[in-house]
Simulated assay, not measured.
Amino acid sequence: MKKSKASDVAILSIFIAIMVVVQLLSQIIYSVWPLPIVPTLLHIPVIIGSIVLGVRKGAFLGLVMGLISVINSTIVTLPSSFMFSPLQPVPGTNHGSIWALVIAIVPRVLVGILPALVYRLAQNRFGAGLAAFVGTATNTLLVLSFIFLFFHDVTKQTFGALLASIITGNSIAEVIIAVILTMAIVPALSKARGNS
C-alpha cells in the first residue's frame, strides 16, 4: 500500500513537471509559430493523469493547470490576460476581476474529474479517446462560456460569436491531438502501473 501511494505521488510529480515543461515550450514555440492555429496542450497531461490516477488526483492536476494559467496571465500581459488573472486590470478599469479565477480554475478542475468518470464506462482505447474528447470539450466550452458570461460587456461578444469561437480550428486541433495522444499513452501507462 505504501509503495502504491509513493508510486502515485511520483507519477503525480512527473505529470506536474510535464505540465510546466509543456507550458514553457508552448510559450517559446508559439512565439515563432507561423500558423494561425495555436492549440492548447496543457490539458492533455491533466486528462491522462485523471484517467490513470483517478478523480481526486486528476482534480489536483486540473487545479495545477488553472494555477499555471493564472500565473502565466499575471506575468505575461496579453489582451486576454485579464480573463485569467485577477491581477490584470479589466480594460476600461484600474482593477482586475475575481471572475478571472473562476474562468482559470473551475473548468480545469473539471478537466481533471470528468475524463476519469468517462473512462470508467469503457476502460479501453475507445474509452480513453472518449475521455479525452470530453475533457477537451469541457475545457473549451466552459472557458469560453464563462468568458462570455462574466466579461460580455468588455468583449462585446454575441452568442453567435461564442458558438463560432467554440467551433474553430484551435478547438478541432485540440480535440484531435488530445484523443490521439490519450489513446496512445493511457493503455501503455496503465499497463506499466499494473506491472509495477
Rank of each mutant, 00 (worst) to 15 (best):
G66M: 05
K2D: 11
S145K: 08
Y30K: 03
L162M: 12
A164G: 11
I47K: 00
L114W: 03
M1Q: 14
S190E: 13
Q88N: 12
Q123V: 12
V38N: 01
I105G: 14
F151N: 04
S13G: 15
I71H: 00
H43F: 02
G160F: 15
V32Q: 04
V154A: 09
T138H: 02
V118H: 02
K156T: 11
P45T: 02
S80L: 11
A104T: 01
M83G: 05
L12W: 11
I14P: 01
R125P: 15
T40E: 07
G160Y: 08
L144R: 10
S26A: 09
G58V: 00
L181V: 04
W99V: 00
A17L: 09
F133I: 02
A131Y: 01
S7P: 11
I176A: 06
V38E: 00
A6K: 15
Q157T: 10
L87G: 10
S31F: 03
W33H: 01
F151E: 09
S73D: 07
I167S: 08
I47R: 00
A128Y: 09
V111K: 03
V111Q: 07
Q157H: 03
A100C: 06
S80N: 09
I37K: 01
P34G: 05
V143F: 12
T168R: 04
L141E: 07
T158S: 15
A188S: 10
S4T: 14
G66W: 05
S31Y: 09
S85Y: 07
V186C: 12
L78K: 13
G54V: 01
L63W: 00
P91T: 01
L110R: 01
I185W: 06
S73W: 03
I37S: 03
I180N: 07
I28P: 00
G96E: 06
V118E: 02
M1H: 11
V143R: 07
S196E: 11
P107N: 09
L78E: 06
P115T: 04
I68W: 01
S50K: 02
S81F: 13
V20G: 06
S7N: 15
T93F: 14
V90K: 02
G194F: 15
Q123P: 15
G112T: 03
F82H: 06
L61Q: 04
M83T: 07
R56V: 08
T93A: 12
K191L: 15
L24D: 00
I167Y: 10
N124F: 08
D153G: 13
I98C: 08
I48C: 02
Q27T: 03
V32H: 05
M65C: 12
R120G: 06
A59S: 13
I47L: 01
S97Y: 09
L130N: 03
S97I: 05
S31Q: 05
A161M: 13
V76M: 11
I176H: 05
I44G: 04
Q27E: 07
F146G: 07
R120N: 10
L110A: 04
V46E: 14
V106Y: 10
V9Y: 10
A131I: 04
S73I: 08
Q123I: 15
L67K: 08
L61R: 04
K57C: 04
Q88I: 12
V64W: 14
P45E: 08
S85Q: 11
L67P: 00
